[in-house]
Simulated assay, not measured.
Amino acid sequence: MDSIPANRRLWNRISGAYQHEHDPQIGAAPRLWGMYSIPDAHLRALGDVTGKRVLELGCGAGQWSRALAAEGADVVGLDLSEAQLGAAARAMGADRYPLVQGTAEQLPFAADTFDLVFCDFGGLSWAPPHLAVPQAARVLRRGGRLVFNVASPWFEACYDEAAARVTTTLQQDYFALDTIAEGDGATSYQLTYGDWVRVLRGASLVIDDLIEPRPDPETLNGYNKTDPPDWAHRWPAELLWVTHKPSSDRL
């Protein structure tokens, strides 16, 4: 919880530069997942959202939320950064949707409100998962789904800080993965496979699938340098979790 003010300051400071650099890629087409912009039509993680109540955790400039609103979803975009929400508001077209400033650790919504909670990095990369996942489960209706994409622990364990790139050599202690210092007190979060399973099951969510998006060899990472360039074609760079809240208390 102590990272919230610092994370807000970070995203308020970098929002303009981030959107200038990345919006041409992530806003180029609807439903593109992650660092390699892999279409959801290929991964089939989100499904039909028409008529569904949807919450995006960490909506940024709203590229995903705009796309789902255009498909007929009843979308709410949540972000901790007023600068990011400002970018989302400016980018809105005819398909408008509510924007809420808040944190994934303390969602300002009643229980059993949404049919789908999702994020592409966003809230589950920038909030402690042991706090954010139970909050997402709380606001889901029975049978509702939590779908989210985060970095793979392989990716983080192979990140060479000195070279500022992901390599083929293990650099970090896998079992020490937890928090990542982003400077000036800001923090992102990285779990092992086992810790993700325990957090999700601890929130009484059922794991339906774990998709490891695999880009084509020639597709480059839009956010990080990797050595070799086709790193994510050979090893998993991201984890796309597909889960749901049971229809009853019996698992």
Rank of each mutant, 00 (worst) to 15 (best):
T169A: 12
A88T: 05
S188N: 13
A151P: 13
P217N: 04
G16N: 11
N149W: 00
R201G: 01
A70S: 11
V54R: 06
L80I: 15
L78D: 04
L191R: 12
W11L: 03
V206G: 02
Q84V: 05
M92H: 07
Y189V: 06
V166L: 03
D112R: 10
G27K: 05
Y193N: 13
R53E: 06
M1G: 14
L140F: 06
G62Y: 01
S65C: 15
V197L: 12
A67D: 10
P30G: 03
G122K: 00
T187R: 14
V166D: 00
A136Q: 03
L43C: 06
I14H: 04
V139G: 09
D209I: 10
D115K: 10
L32Q: 14
K52F: 09
D184F: 10
R165V: 01
L32S: 07
R9W: 00
A136S: 14
R96S: 11
S248M: 05
C59T: 09
A29C: 01
T169W: 02
W154N: 13
R145I: 05
W64N: 12
V133T: 05
R13G: 14
V166E: 00
E105T: 14
P236T: 10
I4E: 14
N221W: 10
A203T: 10
H244S: 10
S15M: 02
W196V: 13
P128L: 11
V100C: 04
T103N: 03
L124C: 11
G62I: 01
G102N: 03
A73E: 10
A110E: 11
Y189A: 09
L32F: 07
E182Q: 12
P228Q: 08
A104G: 13
H20R: 14
N149Q: 07
Q101S: 08
V76R: 05
D208P: 03
R141I: 15
G144R: 01
L239K: 04
N7K: 08
L57M: 03
D249M: 10
W196D: 14
F175V: 13
A151V: 12
D79H: 08
A88S: 13
V242F: 00
L78S: 07
Q25F: 14
T192R: 11
S81D: 01
G77H: 12
V206M: 08
P215F: 02
